[in-house]
Design a protein around this nucleic acid. Structure first.
Lengths: 184, 184
DNA sequence: ACAGGCATGTAAATAGTTACATGATTCG
DNA sequence: CGAATCATGTAACTATTTACATGCCTGT
């Protein structure tokens, strides 16, 4: 049975403790989101499919009077997760509209091309900040014996910081294109 | 009229000279692919839509006896492209299965977690190499007065090289987790 | 003669987002 | 009381990939 990578996100998210669809969504937004997002429109139907396939198991777990279903991984689910983890990763996709605009920025006046890079820089700086705000939680997990979330998060922070740097250099480069060093 | 970012890829690709769908696909694969891909299934239908909307114009341009249609941008198309370029970029997506696997690698024995990072490193090293192979073409364009493709390409090379570095550091870090410095 | 590249296209499937609907509970 | 958060879900839409079909032309 073929599962999508998003199915494995869910499998991974319930592999340590049982969680509700809502909790999975919140967790995804706090952790994997910057390199693998998932929406309710994927999560809830996928939970049903995984339960039908016997890879997870739902159980009623109301909070007070509020209905709630949490899903736990089954032994088959854990086997499937591990098998997937052992396969070499296949998906590597980047969609960066800023780079796309920059690529075509030759049709714009120079000042507007610089503006594209500035937008990218602003976004990446904000992103780095948001990720840094998540560090304390990840550090707690690390102290509890789960080192990977923190490793990945730090990778994300670094990635964004490097991009900010690159944007700064590129901005400078673009400005120099207009006012070349006087060659004496 | 709302256009997808992929529509603008096409608009940009025909903005300097008239090109066929096939040529656009080849060009995309050689240039924007690493941050914005496009398949035939998108390109050909989109060419029709753009032509109907009057943003590009098709013309027969057979090569020998082989039929061929090239599309050129119209003034309205150029206006639409420029307007889009002036909007701040909105799409920033990364889907990296390797990071996803690493995030969940706590359920694997340590050696297999390292393997995930090694796969990522291998992929990124190969990617950097492929992009470096495209540099000569981009440099030609630069010499012809189009500096942006080279700027973007160099960004891509750098991005991949940094990731390779990060993978190396992370591999070392993971190995140390198992054999901690003897604290004396 | 055949392989490989040029060239155009479509159908089907999969993936993913967005927006909406519904209702309970908690906190200020 | 009202806002925010918890909680579950679906419908409609958009995007995108994959695989296939077709056929010409060029070089070996």
């Amino acid at each position: 049975m073929e599962l999508s990578a998003t199915a494995y996100v869910i499998l991974g998210m319930v592999s340590r403790e049982a969680r509700s669809g809502y909790e999975i969504k919140v967790l995804v937004d706090e952790t994997t989101r910057f390199f693998w997002a998932a929406s309710y429109g994927q999560i809830y139907p996928e939970l049903k499919r995984l339960a039908e396939a016997g890879l997870i198991e739902g159980a009623d777990a109301p909070r007070g009077k509020r209905k709630r279903t949490v899903y736990a991984i089954t032994p088959q689910g854990e086997a499937a997760l591990k098998e997937w983890l052992r396969q070499p990763p296949a998906t590597y996709e980047l969609r960066e509209e800023g780079l796309l605009k920059l690529f075509f920025a030759g049709v714009l006046p120079r000042e507007e091309a610089v503006e594209v890079v500035r937008s990218m820089r602003g976004y990446r700086a904000g992103q780095a900040e948001q990720l840094r705000a998540l560090e304390p939680k990840a550090r707690e997990k690390e102290e509890a014996g789960e080192p990977f979330p923190l490793i990945v998060l730090r990778g994300g922070i670094e990635f964004n910081e490097r991009l900010v740097e690159w944007c700064e250099r590129t901005e400078a480069e673009l400005l120099e294109l207009d006012t070349p060093e006087p060659s004496r």
